[in-house]
Design a protein around this nucleic acid. Structure first.
Lengths: 135, 135
DNA sequence: ATGATGCTTAGACGAAGTCTAACGCCGCCC
DNA sequence: GGGCGGCGTTAGACTTCGTCTAAGCATCAT
């Protein structure tokens, strides 16, 4: 994703542009990937950036709210952000901790249950847990 | 779930019986419900029990491993344990934090994607996120 | 300039869970 | 029956991840 794309995305989602937000976006949105806040901080530090921890967390929360990145819930131990914004699901390899996208088209949801009284849908999270096959 | 049922379940899953494990099981497995470690500790304390925090966490981890309870991943902030063991899914109300079971029969999975190379399936977690309907 | 607003920062803080070292209990063996 | 080994439990220290706080800055409008 180019700098231009990122600026467009910010505008589209009503996110004010700041140098720090651009730095975080440049790392996370570079390519389809799954990163934790910590990994992003490491990469920032690695490239000599001095964006503070608080700003990285604030930014990731903001990106999550505005649909600029997606928070994946698999591992209660750390929050993972997914740079792929579209409708899709995940494989989670419990042996390696690896996370892999499943395009929406590859998984069909048949019958869906009635929602609880007085609620409306927000989305469906699906995680297929797998492990390495031994031998 | 009666004390007898719990003892049977422990035996079936190869879990040694201790007074502390029975206390935790009695609370969690009493009825279909979703509890955090903290809630379980509160209830233990409320009924005058002195089981330590470390033991509650150890026990819940053990229950999770042995399929005596199920860890539900919805909220990265805290781990939730589900007393319903069978195959089922969840509604998660983001407004109330409420978690509700979806019987496996109410949700059909159509086409499923091929698993990643060299892996075998462990299970499928599905969470339908909902919010309260305004007005 | 002045003030208002909102972003960023370092570091303190908080919550949830794990770890450590000591202790207790129980079964086993001689 | 006394000693031993292993497992479970315990209190509290500790770790980790994330949030909060208070101060400092930038930007904008007047």
């Amino acid at each position: 994703m180019t700098r231009e794309d990122i600026l467009d995305l910010f505008a589209e989602r009503g996110v004010k542009v700041t140098p720090q937000r651009l730095e975080v976006a440049a790392i996370l949105l570079e390519k389809p990937q799954h990163l934790s806040a910590d990994q992003i901080i490491d990469r920032l530090r690695g490239s000599g950036s001095r964006v503070s921890k608080a700003t990285v967390y604030n930014t990731l929360n903001l990106f999550g709210e505005r649909g600029i990145a997606r928070e994946v819930k698999v591992d209660p131990i750390r929050r993972i952000y997914d740079s792929t914004r579209g409708h899709h699901y995940h494989f989670f390899n419990v042996d390696t901790g690896e996370l892999q996208d499943i395009p929406a088209d590859d998984l069909e949801l048949g019958r869906q249950p009635d929602l609880p009284e007085g609620t409306e849908p927000l989305g469906v999270d699906i995680v297929i847990r797998v492990k390495n096959r031994r031998n």
